[in-house]
Design a binder for these strands. Structure first.
Lengths: 198, 198
DNA sequence: AGCTTAACCGGACATGCTGTCCACTTTTCC
DNA sequence: GGAAAAGTGGACAGCATGTCCGGTTAAGCT
């Protein structure tokens, strides 16, 4: 009998199902890396994974959700460092420095996994992911910490979204395509962080 | 005889063509306003305008280009004011004030025509429009004016894109949906402008 | 091991959008 | 008033989506 009523006893995943899930993720990772993730279709993934359409749809409602699954672990790692890592990324440093460190880490993440991010969080979808909620809460806390007295309550919310806007994957992609280095981008964002939260 | 060789004598548009162009724009404007512009299809526009698919494609390669045509005049008006209007929007005021005024004007424009902007400049398409190039040049000039000595050349380019990021239509839409007023948004952006260019 | 059951698989199908093509019609200009 | 160019609209092929269901396979029980 299951003592945890909230966590209903989910019959463990069957062996063939697990095998296929792994196949799908592997094949998808390769596809995303090899061409514009926004052109990858469910059919493509199914074929590349050697799996039928129905099987694919059983687990993933669309291509974005596959990319998100692949991206998840990387984002989780960063979230962990934000919550419990060393300063200035983790708690302890002044807000401006923490924001700058966050920017730097996000630029790294974007640079390493731009294909996945574009596949997962493009357009308006970006705001609906759990990850975005996390980043916003983090930045919001930093901003609120800094400007305790200044401005009304809602203002901090807006500011958080504004400060996250430059991290839109489409913009990053474009800046890189224009020949800008990640160092340049990080420098500008550090500058922004310093000026806004000081 | 045409004295301007660079401007080849384009045979003027036929009456029926002009009539249909007008019909298309009118019908499209209504469609964009009445539901999510990103769900409007070429077929929808053709049907609503009482025009065949072929006719529609003759002028507009896709739905975005229709929205852009409708948006054009509004954007042009703002561009004119930026170049030759009164300060602080036009030349004469210090960069921080001009940027704040620009932000305020853009928020107004987004608020008035969010449907068109979403239809025209959503996602990565945003960066490819002529309008974006104009905004970037403008903001870049303001930033360069302010930080003549600070930073390398490329830095200013990056900064311009960063400062434009919060004006992404998807973000504006989301902020409004979350209950934030245009006044709140403008206030935050003004704050940003002041802090970055002072 | 054998059997039952439920989870799982994969391809067929219906639907909707895209962009092109071309036979036909209308306008313009001489 | 007639020829040529410009314009029109619907048919068509291609592609992606998301669902559905008959057949298959693993898991659990005896």
């Amino acid at each position: 009998m299951n003592l945890f009523a909230d966590q209903p006893e989910r019959p463990r995943e069957r062996a063939d199902a697990a095998r296929n899930r792994a196949r799908v993720l592997e094949a998808a990772a390769e596809l995303f890396a090899s061409r514009d993730p926004r052109t990858v279709t469910m059919d493509d993934v199914a074929k590349a994974a050697g799996v039928g359409r129905g099987t694919l749809y059983r687990r993933f409602p669309d291509v974005a959700s596959i990319a998100r699954a692949l991206l998840d672990e990387h984002e989780r790692a960063l979230q962990e460092r934000l919550l419990r890592g060393e300063p200035p990324l983790g708690p302890g440093a002044p807000p401006a420095e923490r924001l700058a460190a966050f920017y730097a880490a996000m630029v790294e993440l974007l640079d390493a996994h731009i294909a996945l991010v574009l596949g997962a969080e493009t357009g308006p979808r970006r705001f609906e992911t759990g990850a975005y909620g996390f980043w916003r809460a983090h930045v919001r806390a930093l901003a609120a910490d800094h400007t305790t007295t200044v401005g009304a309550a809602g203002q901090v919310d807006v500011l958080a979204d504004i400060l996250l806007a430059p991290l839109a994957p489409e913009l990053f992609e474009r800046l890189r395509a224009d020949g800008h280095t990640t160092a340049e981008i990080t420098t500008s964002l550090t500058d922004l962080a310093t000026r806004v939260l000081s």
